[in-house]
Simulated assay, not measured.
Amino acid sequence: MIARRLVASLALFLAGCANMGNDGRGYPSLARRPIEGGAPVPQTAAPAPVVPTSVPSGTVADWQTQVPVLLRQAETGRAAFDSAYDGVAAQVRAATGAAISSETWVTANVGLGRLASERNGAVSALATLDTLYADRAKAIADGQLPIIGPGDPLADARSAALAIVDSENDRLDALRAMLKQP
């Protein structure tokens, strides 16, 4: 009895594979295509080389010019976060103890999302500073740059951006902890 059902199911399955597709067209042929038959392939021109428009990435001059810009970006991100924080904190306090999916709970979570997006400036600056720091460390390890002692502007900027991002993360986590979680 089971074998008969299995054979019938297998036959129906194989019959479905042999028919046309849902769109009414047959399945593609397994025959050799012209490109596979050894026909000559047309040659395309090589892409034009990319000409740098600024200081090449990874040079000391590049790091020195980017560090103050990235530090300002982190500070701007902190200012945007700080200006949005009080309003979102008030929304979260109003939603503390509110039922999940209630209007106040949803409003508070939307506010938290907006607040999290305000940290993008600082997070982006930190990521770029981390990349510059790692690139420079590799260049130092490869002997391409001398070892930099205390008072390193790149390390100081990276530490400052990291402190900003850590502070924002802590404040955001504290607000999230005040709301019920689904």
Rank of each mutant, 00 (worst) to 15 (best):
R4E: 13
V7T: 15
G16Y: 11
N19I: 14
G21T: 09
N22G: 14
D23E: 09
G24Y: 14
P28H: 05
E36P: 04
A39Y: 15
A39T: 15
P40C: 12
V41F: 11
P42N: 14
A45I: 06
A45T: 09
P49R: 06
P49M: 05
V50T: 12
T53N: 10
V55M: 05
P56S: 01
P56N: 01
G58V: 01
T59S: 07
P68A: 04
P68W: 04
A74L: 05
A79H: 00
A80S: 07
A84T: 09
G87H: 11
V88R: 02
A90L: 07
V92K: 08
A98H: 02
A98I: 01
S102E: 08
T104V: 13
T107S: 15
V110C: 03
G111C: 03
S117F: 10
N120C: 02
A122G: 05
L132R: 08
L132H: 11
D135G: 05
I140P: 03
I140V: 15
G143M: 06
G143W: 07
G149Y: 02
G151R: 02
D152Q: 03
D152M: 00
A157G: 05
L162R: 10
A163H: 08
A163Y: 06
S167Q: 09
S167Y: 05
D170S: 10
R171V: 01
A174R: 09
R176Q: 14
A177M: 06
